[in-house]
Amino acid sequence: MSGHTSSTQQSTAGERLLKNLFLVALCVMVLYPVVWVFKMAFTPSQGFSMSLNPIPENPSLANFEYLLTELPFFTWLFNSVVISLATTLVGVFLACTSAYALSRFRFPGRTTAMLSFLVTQMFPGVLMMIPLYLIMDWLGLLDHLLGLILVYSTTAIPFCVWMLKGYFDTIPIDLEEAAMMDGASTATIFWKVILPLSLPAVAVTALFSFMTAWNEFILAAVFMNRADNYTLPVGLQRLVGQFSTDWGYFAAGAILVSIPVVALFFALQKNLVGGLTAGGVKG
């Protein structure tokens, strides 16, 4: 990152030209599928001629119109938004409090708690589905938004806890001691000192929880049976079949669904990388 470059890291103009050519070609390859989705989305009538040309022949908004007016897109959107926001709220609250406890207190069972957070991450989500399905059935939460909210926020906890704990650890304890000297209680310190200082980390955690819930597909597909309970991923997946002709609607939906997450992703990607590698393993 340092501004000055050494002679060893400099490259000749010819090398740079080659590099640029290669990278441009690679970028085209990487972007092609995205462009292809745009082409499908703006090509009306669900009919695609097989061609590599990325520009739609008769561009139209028919797919978007159909998606928004004929399909229950707004129902799916509503479900996804409700589930993702609630997951974020519940998940971040739970993660903040327990990360604070793990970072600031020494108590019996602390190491066990941290280790078990780590180990459960290895029991992959899909495998928890069988018992979760039975438990949700038993609790009567199948086909309920609440069921998914609870599952998403708890499964996101371990990752968020590890990430937040790492951040809390970097906040100097002197601040708290000073506050304590002034007579502040632990709760006051937590709410008034620690949380405001950790806002960047909390924001990343919140965005991570939101994206997890927004993007999750398979649990939603298994738990939600009624079409008016589908989330966006499930709804979109139902539009796609090997010989089905609904690809245009899918493409239109994919664009609408991806724009907010891609934007969020680019906003927080720098922070996410550090958290991911430090936070351990998530299946």
Binding site: F93, L94, A95, T97, S98, Y100, A101, L102, R104, F105, F107, P108, R110, A113, S116, F117, T120, F123, L127, M128, I130, P131, L132, L134, I135, L150, V151, S153, T154, T155, I157, P158, V161, T186, F190
Partner: peptide
């Protein structure tokens, strides 16, 4: 009792984890 502060902060997450993560894992 001694560490009630710590356990208090930890308990909401632990309850959730027990019901929706640990029990499913053991049940599985």
């Amino acid at each position: 009792v001694d560490h009630r502060g710590a356990y208090g902060y930890l308990s909401p997450a632990i309850v959730g984890m027990v019901v929706l993560v640990f029990i499913p894992v053991v049940y599985g």
